[in-house]
Design a protein around this nucleic acid. Sequence first.
DNA 1: ATTCAATGAGACATTCATGTCTCATATGGG
DNA 2: CCCATATGAGACATGAATGTCTCATTGAAT
Lengths: 183, 183
Amino acid sequence: MTLDREQVLRSAAALLTRKSTATMDEVARAAGIGRATLHRHFAGRDALVRALENLGIQEFEAALDAAELDKGTSEEALRRLIAAVEPSAGLLSFLVTENQLFEGEEVNEGWSRTDARVSAFFRRGQERGEFRIDLTPAWLTEALYGLVSTGAWAVQVGRVAGQDFQYMIVELLLGGARRSVEQ
Amino acid sequence: MTLDREQVLRSAAALLTRKSTATMDEVARAAGIGRATLHRHFAGRDALVRALENLGIQEFEAALDAAELDKGTSEEALRRLIAAVEPSAGLLSFLVTENQLFEGEEVNEGWSRTDARVSAFFRRGQERGEFRIDLTPAWLTEALYGLVSTGAWAVQVGRVAGQDFQYMIVELLLGGARRSVEQ
DNA sequence: ATTCAATGAGACATTCATGTCTCATATGGG
DNA sequence: CCCATATGAGACATGAATGTCTCATTGAAT
């Protein structure tokens, strides 16, 4: 036996991504373990969510690393980032929603780090003349989170094909819906 | 006395927009009435949320009407729509999140109507050559919802100035973050 | 002034998720 | 083979929100 704590977190993430109000019992069943065992690994629901938050931050930071945002053009870097983030999109979507419930309480410092990195990426792109300067880096950062969440949900419910996830997000984020003249 | 049911709904919307987990007691206090009275007007929390859902749908449909999406260019129409939707953005944001919890259960038919209208608007824009055809109307519709929600939240927490709400959403949705050559 | 309907406050029962605990069982190492 | 450890199942208590009810009070209409 000696179950894998990491594996439990993965299945919890998968379940909570689909049903964010799942009970501890449902989370345990989904992981194929008993509720008591789940409590032995995570002191409570808060602890579980915090662990998931740390996992999400860790995965997001890994995606930021993997994307090598300072290499090549900003556009290429953004494409790499969205590609790298796709496997974590569902979890991040859950965490974003969950975070909004905290309305003022202390938030995990990890988000400040990721916010800073994403925001700095957009600012660099602006300084290089590759991104518009009339949209603030803070807004572009939030928009990226929002579109990734929306995309994950749209794929989840079947409104968007899974294989289009990256393309739809990147293209909208980069070029918008307007048909440009050169096309 | 003879309190206004509409007024109660408004204050409930305002509160739940900020704190989506507010209890019936908090909702009642926010409306300046007792919990018993709140229950006399809305059978329970479900009934309250359903009433809010109908209010949100009604407001969104009113915004769709007011925007006159078939007049002028698609771009102008989209600007009118976002402007008309801004006062309801918080409520819609709450309802979108709330709806995702229903994961499969019956959804209010009103959303089908609004989805159809927004989606048809993007499709018309594509047919007119004003919108890109490589982004599906379904995705553009979801993206619009997502950006409106994200924008409402970003303003809520102070990451984006309230006066920039419309501009940030419309510009990103239309033109994206890329700095185009003609600028 | 009287009457009547609506309200506010609070008591009460119910439900549900959570957290804790016990105990029998199974697994894996020595 | 035996033992230590982890697990699963379930019982149990707790807390929170909900929903229902009563009753005194308020406000408005007559």
